[in-house]
């Protein structure tokens, strides 16, 4: 049997590499600036979470959980945060929360306007959709490499990789939320002479808020699922602990750190769901 060979070899990978190299060479200062800015935000948030004494932090989280989500979530938060500290992972846990907070902050910062634009323009939506699909389906390891090339090693490329992965739900749900606003209500806004901004701020965004909050929630969950991957390029926190435990085959550390991430994820999820439900009640009285 003759071996069939392909007549051409398209070196797309090489092209991409060349492109990224070119970008790194020519926009070094830009990316340095981004790295520094993100780093400053991250360090400040990290320092803040690690500065707050643990009893106060637990009390604050429990208080918030109680307010927005009720007794059960409050109790769960108290127990699980206490366990996190008791596992000797308090500082790592706080670093992870800082990393997630920073990533989510950036995702919302970019995701919200992108979602709004996608809702306003079908054409923009059509262009954006495959890009978002790509961001979510390409294995996250693949874009760790350009992230390192552009932002170096450490927390910042971790945050950037996380943003890429966690941005799509924010964009999608903002888009969906705005598009789902009752057409007659939008017509009413226009019929009384609203400007596009008035329509957006007074009608579309308030009515899309529950969907947008669901987007924030999903973004948080996606970001948490990225912490181990981000640790591979130098991000710290619980993700690093888990990576360490994999490399050393250390079940004890792996289990405790894994539970730590689970706790943080569940607390954040319940609190954010509580906020979403509260808004739904205000807006739709369900």
């Amino acid at each position: 049997m003759g071996e069939l060979t392909f007549p051409v070899r398209i070196p797309l990978g090489r092209w991409a590499e060349t492109l990224i190299m070119w970008v790194t060479d020519n926009f070094e200062s830009t990316f340095d600036g981004i790295t520094k800015t993100v780093n400053v935000i991250l360090v400040k948030i990290d320092a803040f979470f690690n500065w707050v004494p643990w009893p106060i932090m637990i009390a604050a989280v429990v208080g918030i959980a109680w307010l927005v989500s009720g007794k059960k979530t409050a109790l769960f938060s108290a127990v699980s945060l206490f366990l996190l500290g008791a596992f000797g992972l308090w500082s790592e846990g706080m670093s992870t929360i800082a990393l997630v907070t920073t990533s989510v902050f950036i995702s919302v910062l970019f995701g919200l306007p992108l979602g709004i634009l996608a809702a306003k323009s079908d054409r923009f939506d059509a262009v954006l959709r495959p890009i978002l699909d790509g961001m979510q389906t390409i294995p996250s390891f693949v874009y760790l490499i350009p992230a390192i090339m552009l932002f170096g090693i450490g927390n910042v490329p971790g945050v950037m990789a996380t943003v890429i992965f966690s941005l799509p739900p924010m964009v999608r749900l903002t888009n969906l939320g705005i598009r789902q606003v009752d057409a007659e209500v939008v017509e009413a806004g226009l019929a009384f002479g609203s400007t596009p901004w008035q329509l957006l701020l007074k009608i579309q965004l308030p009515l899309a808020l529950p969907a947008i909050m669901t987007g924030v929630n999903q973004t948080v969950m996606m970001a948490l699922s990225m912490v181990v991957v981000a640790a591979m390029i130098g991000a710290g926190g619980l993700g690093y602990k888990i990576l360490y435990s994999i490399q050393r085959v250390n079940l004890a550390v792996g289990l405790e750190s894994g539970l730590g991430i689970l706790f943080i994820a569940m607390i954040l999820d319940r609190i954010l769901q509580g906020v979403t439900k509260k808004q739904q009640k205000v807006i739709f009285r369900e």
């Binding site: 007659e184 209500v185 017509e187 009413a188 226009l190 019929a191 009384f192 002479g193 009515l207 807006i283």
Partner: peptide
């Protein structure tokens, strides 16, 4: 639209 023409809708279209 602001000054001269008002409109009433079938399903009320109020802001909930």
């Amino acid at each position: 639209r602001r000054k001269k023409i008002g409109m009433v809708f079938q399903h009320f279209a109020l802001l909930p």
